[in-house]
Amino acid sequence: MPTSLFQHARTRAIVLAAALFGALALFLAAAPPALAHDELVSATPADGTVLEEAPAEIKLVFSSELMDLGNQVIVADASGADQVQAEPILNRETLVQKLPALSDGEYQVSWRAVSSDGHPITGAFSFTVGDPASTDAATDPAAGGAESTPATDQASPAPDQTAIADSQNTSSGTFGPLGWVLTIVGGAVVGVLIYVVVVLVNKRRRGGSA
């Protein structure tokens, strides 16, 4: 009889341990997609858009609510000068950057936002105001436009743009602090449960042998 009880307890312990290991494997497999960084869903104006009139704002919509921490939008003209004169406005998952009156030409937009998991995400796109052909003709001497004078000092990228590029390199492919915390907590809980199962099996074993 004690031997039968011991075998039954051992079988239950094995089944429970297998279930716990399966649950841990499922948690680790499902955690990265669930904790993936938020991403840009849409931008207005969209990348590559040619506009007849300059936009009054840049509107960025993300897949989840952003954190109001260090969000930034840079709108650089052909010379690299940032045209932004105010801070962006965050409304949950929507980031809006008001713009001054922009001249005709191509503009490069670089944005930085803080994902809901606390990790920075970045991106860039461009749009053009006015007819690109007429803009090029106005600055091309061969096309009969005003002759352009070469600049003595080439405009360097804005420091904020360099910081954005650095943060993009360091943030890509990472799990995020929240993901690591949940993984450690989940592993600790599974370890405690396995320890409890082992203790119970040992007690039953000693009771059966007695």
Results as ranks from 00 to 15, higher is better:
Lys98Phe: 02
Glu65Arg: 04
Pro141Asn: 11
Ala13Ser: 14
Ser134Pro: 02
Ala56Arg: 04
Leu16Gly: 00
His37Ser: 14
Ser110Thr: 13
Ser42Asn: 07
Pro150Phe: 14
Ala19Arg: 03
Ala142Phe: 13
Tyr107Asn: 09
Thr149Asp: 09
Ala25Trp: 00
Ala54Thr: 06
Val15Gly: 03
Gln154Pro: 02
Pro120Val: 07
Ile89Pro: 05
Gly173Asn: 05
Asp131Met: 07
Ser134Ile: 10
Leu40Ser: 05
His119Glu: 12
Ala137Tyr: 13
Leu28His: 00
Ser172Gly: 01
Ser63Arg: 01
Ile89Lys: 12
Ala31Tyr: 02
Gly173Ala: 03
Arg12His: 10
Leu26Pro: 00
Gly173Arg: 02
Gly208Ala: 06
Phe62Asn: 01
Thr149Asn: 05
Ala17Cys: 11
Pro45Ala: 12
Gln154His: 04
Ala124Tyr: 04
Tyr195Asp: 07
Glu87Pro: 05
Pro32Arg: 05
Asp166Ile: 08
Val196Thr: 07
Ile194Leu: 15
Trp180Phe: 14
Ala46Tyr: 05
Gly179Lys: 09
Ala101Met: 09
Asp131Gly: 11
Phe175Met: 11
Val75Cys: 01
Gly208Pro: 06
Gln83Thr: 11
Ile74Pro: 00
Leu66Tyr: 04
Asp82Gly: 11
Asp104Tyr: 03
Glu106Tyr: 03
Gly208Phe: 02
Gly130Ile: 07
Leu5Arg: 12
Val61Ser: 10
Ala31Asn: 11
His37Ile: 00
Val189Glu: 00
Asn202Ile: 13
Pro177Gln: 03
Leu20Ala: 07
Ala18Cys: 08
Ala43Leu: 04
Phe6Asp: 01
Ala13Met: 10
Ala31Leu: 14
Ser4Glu: 14
Leu99Arg: 08
Val190Gln: 02
Phe62Met: 06
Thr149Val: 13
Asp140Ala: 06
Phe21Gln: 03
Gln72Thr: 15
Phe6Ser: 06
Leu35Thr: 02
Leu51Asn: 03
Ser209Asp: 11
Thr44Lys: 09
Asp47Glu: 10
Leu193Ala: 15
Asn91Glu: 15
Ser172Glu: 11
Asn202Leu: 03
Leu178Asp: 01
Ala13Gln: 13
Ser148Arg: 15
Val196Tyr: 01
Leu35Gln: 10
Thr149Arg: 15
Ser115Pro: 01
Ala155Val: 10
Thr3Lys: 14
Arg10Asn: 14
Leu193Tyr: 04
Ser42Ala: 13
Leu24Asp: 00
Ala142Pro: 06
Ile194Pro: 03
Leu66Ser: 03
Leu20Thr: 11
Tyr195Glu: 03
Ala165Lys: 09
Ser172Arg: 14
Thr139Pro: 08
Val181Met: 02
Ala31Asp: 02
Arg112Thr: 07
Ser171Gln: 06
Ser126Asp: 10
Val109Leu: 06
Thr44Pro: 07
Gly144His: 09
Gln168Glu: 13
Leu26Cys: 05
